[in-house]
Nucleic acid binder design. Structure first.
Lengths: 224, 224
DNA sequence: GTCAGTTTGTGAATGTGAACACAAGCACGA
DNA sequence: TCGTGCTTGTGTTCACATTCACAAACTGAC
């Protein structure tokens, strides 16, 4: 079933599949069935087959999927085939942790520049990256950096993102817990840590409260 | 329209509304219209009205919503009316940043305990919290701690969550990028930072690639 | 009391994603 | 060449979420 729009929810799951497939490849497998991958990543096998069917026929009936081909194809879809360079804006506690975070490499992502406004921090080297003055954000385009991670205080988030948009950045991962407006060409994904934690008590109905458990039981698990 | 099940997507939005309402209250407002809140939090006003209608009639036609009543009600729904105590497991770079994160307080949440396996870290005090040995996780229930934040390496995540489940923890915010299985009574929300970043290049179609822009343009923004 | 201006609450329509069942297709052995 | 066992690909059905349009209800002025 070619020439079909790829649903957003499928795009959201592709990185999950990608990690599972790369781990399987490391373990020496060359083929994998949707059922095996399902057990591994926790997504129903029928869902996996439908997701894969959106961008072509990569499986062989009776055999399974060719892991190498699938990995290459998913990377192409997600545009991870060419390594993506990212910039970090805001090197506070969270920013420093992100600089040290080892998980980006598996996806071919890397933080190659870091910016801050604090003169005390500018010039310091954290995890091999020298912290630069925020004014140099405008050079991002020339340096071939297309992604940005925003870890500044919420009051500075909107102006930071305005400057990133002006500098030609096209994708932003934002940790500031506030509404952001950006030009249509810039995709912003906001990750609000406190908000996720605040959602958690709702699913714990058996507390001492006399509140009715209006909603059903907790549905096991949830990703992102 | 009372006695109606609250949709999951509505629950996901409630913390957003809550923050917007509390900020409005701080600014001295007592009433707010769905349109005003919509502009503030970036959710359509019709969506806001439907969401609020799921748990009772809190608005007054021609006037708007009583902010105080609404804040109390949302807190009750989310079970944030009684302050929730959380434990942090894993005080590495990310864990330390979370200990210092000031954003939890607004929701009445607080990290009141921290655990690690590294003997070098145990006993140290980070942001007023003394790091304890992981073996004391079993005391969590007795200390009235019901939430946990897991920021350990992925290889240790499953065993950590097993122990938390055994200790009576009911809700877990997990930062480890891997599949987790937990008993049905434990709600796990996984927040995979690298995965979110890996999703971003997909929405930047104008790159040098000769790939077809199969999916439409970037739909402005996305929360969490 | 009436009228104009606002704003909520909600039923209906639309859009989107998940679940399911099963036919189609491949490998392998006899 | 045929039959068996396994796995994919997909049409259909169902469940859930969003959008829209509008009647109902409230305020305040005159």
């Amino acid at each position: 079933m070619r020439y079909h729009r790829i649903p957003d929810e499928t795009v959201r799951r592709l990185p999950i599949y990608l990690r599972g497939l790369m781990i399987s490849a490391d373990q020496g497998y060359e083929h994998i069935s949707s059922q095996f991958l399902a057990d591994f990543v926790g997504v129903p096998s029928s869902q996996i087959r439908k997701d894969f069917s959106y961008f072509g026929d990569f499986g062989t009936r009776g055999v399974g999927y060719d892991i190498g081909k699938l990995v290459r194809e998913i990377k192409k879809i997600l545009r991870l085939d060419a390594a993506c360079k990212s910039a970090l804006i805001g090197v506070g506690d969270l920013g420093s942790a992100l600089l040290a975070y080892p998980g980006f490499g598996a996806y071919g992502l890397a933080i190659v520049a870091a910016f801050d406004v604090d003169p005390q921090r500018i010039g310091q080297i954290v995890n091999g990256i020298r912290i630069e003055d925020s004014s140099r954000i405008s050079e991002l385009d020339r340096r071939g950096i297309t992604l940005a991670i925003v870890a500044v205080p919420w009051a500075a988030a909107q102006s930071t993102i305005d400057r990133l948009a002006e500098a030609g950045i096209r994708g932003i991962l934002n940790f500031a817990p506030c509404r952001i407006v950006a030009p249509r060409r810039v995709k912003v994904i906001t990750l609000d840590i406190a908000m996720e934690l605040a959602r958690l008590p709702y699913y714990m109905p058996a507390g001492g409260s006399n509140e009715q458990p209006i909603a059903g039981g907790s549905p096991q698990q949830e990703a992102s």
